[in-house]
Simulated scan of single mutants.
Amino acid sequence: MEISGIFTALFIGIIIGALGRLVLPGKQRIGFWLTLVVGIVAALLGTLLAAAVGVADTDGIDWIELFLQIAFAAGGVALVDRLRGGGNRRRSITR
């Protein structure tokens, strides 16, 4: 992988991760670096799934691929937020 490919992956990861956070309601308590990692993984998974289904190479913008990437990012952000103890967890009432 060339250095330009690494920078492109980081840039796309930031955008996809941020879009994944935007579609989720409420505040997510994960940092920039976790958002970046989730975004990169979501971009890769979305691209792989779009290629497997056969909708990755179209003329113009690949809207289905972009939708899949954002959906993976939203799911990843929600999962990481939940695993880190954020989100709307029920509090136990002690007596």
Rank of each mutant, 00 (worst) to 15 (best):
M1P: 14
M1W: 02
M1R: 05
E2R: 11
I3E: 14
I3A: 06
I3R: 14
I3D: 12
S4Y: 04
G5V: 04
G5D: 10
A9C: 10
A9M: 14
A9W: 08
L10F: 15
F11H: 15
I12W: 13
I12Y: 10
I12S: 11
G13W: 10
G13S: 09
I14M: 15
I15Q: 13
I15K: 08
I15H: 09
I15G: 14
I15R: 13
I16D: 12
L19P: 15
G20M: 05
V23N: 14
L24E: 02
P25H: 08
P25K: 08
P25G: 11
P25N: 09
P25Y: 04
G26C: 04
G26M: 06
G26T: 02
G26Y: 03
Q28W: 07
Q28Y: 10
R29I: 11
R29K: 09
G31M: 02
W33G: 07
W33M: 13
T35F: 01
T35G: 00
L36F: 03
L36A: 01
V37H: 05
V37A: 01
G39N: 01
I40D: 00
I40E: 00
I40V: 05
V41P: 00
V41F: 00
V41Y: 00
V41I: 01
A42Q: 00
L44S: 02
L44T: 02
L44C: 03
L45G: 07
L45Q: 06
L45T: 02
L45M: 10
L45H: 01
T47I: 02
T47P: 05
L48W: 11
L49W: 01
A50S: 11
A51H: 12
A51V: 07
A52L: 15
V53M: 12
V53H: 11
G54Q: 10
G54W: 04
G54T: 09
V55E: 06
V55N: 07
V55M: 03
V55I: 08
A56Y: 09
D57V: 01
D57G: 04
D59I: 02
G60Q: 03
G60E: 03
G60C: 01
G60N: 00
I61H: 00
D62V: 04
D62N: 14
I64R: 01
I64C: 00
I64H: 00
F67V: 14
L68P: 07
L68C: 09
Q69A: 08
Q69S: 05
I70T: 09
I70M: 03
F72H: 05
F72V: 05
A73H: 00
A73K: 00
A74Q: 04
G75H: 02
G76R: 04
G76W: 05
V77H: 14
V77N: 11
V77Y: 10
A78W: 13
A78E: 09
A78V: 12
L79W: 14
L79E: 09
V80D: 09
D81W: 06
D81S: 05
D81T: 07
R82E: 14
R82G: 12
L83V: 14
R84K: 13
R84M: 15
N88I: 13
R89W: 06
R90C: 13
R90I: 15
R91W: 03
S92N: 15
S92D: 13
I93H: 11
I93S: 13
R95N: 10
R95G: 13
R95P: 15
